[in-house]
Design a protein around this nucleic acid. Structure first.
Lengths: 202, 202
DNA sequence: AGAAAGATAGTAATCGATTACTTACTTTAG
DNA sequence: CTAAAGTAAGTAATCGATTACTATCTTTCT
């Protein structure tokens, strides 16, 4: 839960707001999160939010900045610690999955933002985030092919799409089961199939 | 587009309503589709909708019934026409993808329904739809293992999850590109990787 | 056959509830 | 003391849903 302190400095209050939104997104449809619900979660009145953000979309934008930073930082760290492209892909996958388990609202917000018809700042931020993410995957996959670790006939574009879809499928299963932690058990099994589909076979 | 006729018989009007909702779901966030928007798309007043449906959720429920019937019917037909479990899986995949291209709003509505916090009738209908779908995949996969067509160490649960996730990944890519037809080119490439991941290798 | 009668379908106005956002006032911390 | 932070009570717009009423089609009776 979020700290119930009153009279926080502005910067801290904004951070707490982001946390509250991410929490709420794990419990309900992200596009139906109201400013009243956010304020209530923080133990604040609704109007107080607008002391720190000019609009609701600015709140969502701050959330997406937070997501982009945290997710990419963990993904990069996981990739750098690995010793080969394939093990890097696996490490990135598990890091991503672990992030999703900790913050189940995040993938739901990302997908929700992509669905919006309007071209908001938060939507554009999600687009660039996924674009950057896809480029990282691309690099790893192409390096893996060069190193004869991955199938030389592999389509990096398709492999990248499947990588992201794999996680999306796990999220969908967790929505069906109503249990996020199930992902942790299923993720290795699902990645094993993916790994088998991209690996080099002499 | 939907027929602009006035004074349709009740059953036809309900069918037209479902079509309108599916169309709208392809253009905007499904959870933000209003009854006014539906009526406007049909060339009708908003109140007229409630002559044919007791509530908005009843409309969504009708849409989900429509989706479940159409999708499962096409998937079943594709599977029965195939000559082996693996080719059936591929046929189901392509049939599903073709369905998504024709009605891009459908997968977005399914995912959106799953995200809802409330236990509505339409949400439960989506849950049973995906459950049925997963069982079909299960059957095909287990038969494929028996027939020595698929990897004997394959986890049918994980393979089923990955199958659905693969399509979900394609949908996400189409949202990013803003172009649905891209799916048709990418689908075979992505399925090729999936196929490589599950196939039997002596 | 044809007009009256009933049933069905659609309209326009409106309801209370909820939304994002604003304003005027009060409290708190440095 | 003062500026920042929070409260309380508003705003206009929009939501799903209901109302009273009109238009159109179908059935029935002579």
């Amino acid at each position: 839960m979020v700290t119930p302190n009153k009279h926080l400095p502005a910067e801290e209050r904004r951070a707490v707001t982001v946390e509250a939104v991410v929490e709420l997104a794990a419990e309900q449809n992200p596009s139906n999160i109201t400013t009243s619900a956010i304020a209530k979660r923080m133990g604040l009145t609704q109007g107080a939010l607008f002391r720190h953000f000019p609009s609701k979309d600015a709140i969502l934008q701050a959330v997406m900045e937070w997501v982009a930073e945290r997710l990419m930082s963990r993904v990069d760290k996981a990739a750098q610690a690995a010793t080969s492209p394939l093990s890097a892909l696996e490490a990135v996958f598990m890091a991503h999955v672990e992030f999703v388990i900790e913050r189940p609202g995040v993938p739901r917000m990302l997908f929700g933002e992509l669905q919006r018809a309007e071209e908001t700042a938060s939507k554009r931020m999600v687009q660039t985030l996924i674009h950057r993410y896809g480029e990282r995957l691309h690099q790893l996959i192409e390096q893996g092919i060069k190193d004869k670790e991955l199938d030389p006939q592999l389509d990096p574009e398709a492999a990248s799409t499947l990588f992201i879809g794999t996680i999306q499928g796990l999220v969908m299963q967790s929505l069906l089961a109503g249990d996020v932690c199930q992902i942790r058990q299923d993720a290795p099994k699902v990645f094993a199939i993916y790994r088998r589909g991209i690996i080099y076979r002499p």
